[in-house]
Amino acid sequence: MWRRVLRGGHAFIGLRSGGTKALWGFHGLRACSAPALPAGCITALQAVDFWTKQFEGKGVTEPELSSRYIIAYLLGAKTIESLEQQRLKEFLSREETDQLWQLCTQRLSRMPVQYVIGEWDFRDLTLKMRPPVFIPRPETEELVEVVLTDLQRLCGSGATVLEVGCGSGAISVSLLKSLPQLKAFALDQSQEAVDLTRENALRYGVQDRLQVHNIDVVKDADALLGLCGSVAVLVSNPPYLFSQDMTTLQPEILRFEDHAALDGGKDGLNVIKQILTLAPRILPNQGRVYLEVDPRHPPLIQQWVEGNGKSLQYIETRSDICGRPRFCILQNEAPKPDQD
């Protein structure tokens, strides 16, 4: 239901329909009071200033950056800095102005910049972004770093990785692009995410080494077990928010991103526990699990694994660059077969 509303909302915003207003209430009203197109011509720099002020006035977060990113995108660049000064002083064409007004009006409705311009960078990749598929966060770039370092050290070529909850495919595509011998399975409960992961894999030419499946690991564990052969590594950025925190999220997240990719249940551990339950049945001896989690989670996970983790051992907690405990590493220690 939520997703349908979102998709509808996305379409409506462009049309400034009354229907959006009814659905979004107060914020929807704001979105509809978009400024009129300018009568004369304006330059890119003037447009940056104009929209920065508009965003500021309407309480949109990161007003200046949003304005700069959208205009840079319009002019075919990633950042304003990478454009020549001369280009920024030239007048925008009518078409460019029209398109800019459309894009910025979407931002006024609090749509994340990443969805407005339809792409964002993750490590050295530029990935397609599309609502409601979860937008990868910078912390996940570090998760990939951790996994990459270990994969290069621990596994030879030809290992297979399983990613649970692939979203836009950021983790899987990054790993596959960095390690040309690697293969991967990627799962997501959302068909939109599965489609987007495929598109991003295609973009970087790793589609032949990636199998993407629309599977919900909580509801359909058997499908997962039947599907994957032996995988050396399980990696996931699962939904880890505590349900009670969902209401305090910024409008960009709350209104546009798939809640199923964020809400981890009462203690944020719903999907995590499911992954840790299945891991010993999927991973070989010494196979590892890498998770991105909430900073409150590592001790809870360690505790849970000691009671319910079977052969799974908690190895280590790593912090993100801001110093928050963010990544958990676990390892399967299968009991040694009896020696005759």
Partner: peptide
Amino acid sequence: GGQHVNTT
């Protein structure tokens, strides 16, 4: 940080 925040 993490999933709680979306920043550019």
